[in-house]
Simulated assay, not measured.
Amino acid sequence: MKTSIEHLPVELWISIFSYLEAHDLLQAFTNLNHYFNQLIASDYLLFHVRLGKTNHNPLEYAIHTYWSNSILNRIVSLQPIHQHKTSHIPEFLRWHCTKLNQLKFLKMKLRGREIPTICNILPQLHSLHHISIECVPNQMLLKTILCVDTIRICQLNFLPAVTSIIYESSQMSNIENLYIKYRDDSNNSILNFLLNHMPKLKKLEINSPESYFDSRDSPFAKPLFILLELRTIKIHWSLMYCDPKFFESLHQLMPNLQCFYLNIIYNYLTEDFFNNLVCHWWPTIEKIQQVDIFIKCRRPQITIDNNMQMNVDKFQSTLVAMNDKYNGIVKVIWMEKVFVGYRIIEISICKS
């Protein structure tokens, strides 16, 4: 009995095509035969599009003849071919945004001159659920992101801002998951602006390992907002100072927090740091259901005298004793090493 691939169930072909990028799919199967033309025309087939840079005129690239309305209104994902590189996505959106009725995921890297255009386009994408942007931020872009009420997941990769960010805005966002990475945010103006307008936030991830700052100026040190819905927070920071009220303020602002992940690089080891960790941070750690903390701190070996060494040993004993105190619910690991004249201490605290 002879069979052909056309005998496979339509549902299987739709599933197979969902793994292919739109250009590859259309080039491989368009006009292959009547059966595949019908499949490509099916409303059940949705397209994932990747755009890059070409040597052609970007307008010609954006309005290429195969971008028919029947294809445009079935695009659900749009992103660049190469991560962290600019593409023709802004031009594509400018020409076709009103036809992208099912676009749910959008990822792009923007130049400063493209931001006003994107700010006009985003409110027209009525199905947009997940947005990912890399750029130099400004007030206009942040306010526009907050105004798009369909966005639930927001990923922001920001270079240092060149204009000031003002906190005041009446717009409240429906964003539930926020991932933000930034190189520099003086006075945490960007983070404060976003968190102050995201009352429905459930998951927050902050990544700023390249910027050292004083935790007394962190967005959690001042009660500008209360995130009642927040359940999970992940922070990757570099600190110059350890504020004893950091954890206390954190839990006041996020009273229903269940999972807390913290990765800190502490630039200069002090005895106050360990005192804050044991005496001030620990009571709040006890209140959170799941905790995963990694702290790496250092100090020149020649500056550690006998008194300081005795205090460090005392804090080490206190922390390691938590393993027995909590009967395995809390696991503390303390590791030390000397590298190029520096004493490096790594502390891991896990609670589940």
Score class of each variant (00 low, 15 high):
residue 1 M to T: 09
residue 5 I to V: 09
residue 6 E to T: 07
residue 10 V to T: 01
residue 16 I to F: 06
residue 35 Y to K: 07
residue 37 N to S: 11
residue 39 L to N: 05
residue 48 H to M: 01
residue 52 G to A: 01
residue 53 K to F: 03
residue 59 L to S: 15
residue 68 S to K: 00
residue 76 V to S: 15
residue 82 H to F: 13
residue 98 T to M: 00
residue 100 L to W: 13
residue 106 L to D: 04
residue 107 K to M: 10
residue 110 L to P: 13
residue 112 G to A: 01
residue 113 R to E: 11
residue 113 R to T: 01
residue 116 P to K: 03
residue 118 I to Q: 11
residue 123 P to C: 00
residue 125 L to C: 12
residue 137 P to T: 04
residue 138 N to D: 15
residue 139 Q to C: 10
residue 142 L to E: 09
residue 145 I to Y: 04
residue 150 T to L: 01
residue 168 E to N: 15
residue 169 S to Y: 03
residue 173 S to G: 10
residue 181 K to G: 15
residue 197 H to C: 01
residue 198 M to F: 06
residue 200 K to I: 02
residue 206 I to D: 07
residue 207 N to I: 08
residue 208 S to C: 07
residue 216 R to L: 06
residue 223 P to I: 00
residue 228 L to A: 08
residue 234 K to P: 07
residue 236 H to K: 11
residue 240 M to S: 15
residue 246 F to L: 14
residue 248 E to W: 09
residue 248 E to K: 14
residue 249 S to L: 08
residue 251 H to C: 02
residue 251 H to S: 03
residue 252 Q to W: 10
residue 258 Q to M: 10
residue 264 I to K: 14
residue 270 T to S: 09
residue 275 N to Y: 15
residue 290 Q to G: 00
residue 292 D to S: 03
residue 292 D to A: 04
residue 311 N to A: 06
residue 316 Q to N: 12
residue 320 V to R: 08
residue 321 A to H: 11
residue 325 K to P: 14
residue 326 Y to D: 12
residue 326 Y to N: 14
residue 327 N to I: 06
residue 330 V to N: 10
residue 330 V to H: 09
residue 335 M to H: 14
residue 338 V to W: 07
residue 338 V to C: 05
residue 338 V to D: 00
residue 340 V to Y: 05
residue 347 I to D: 03
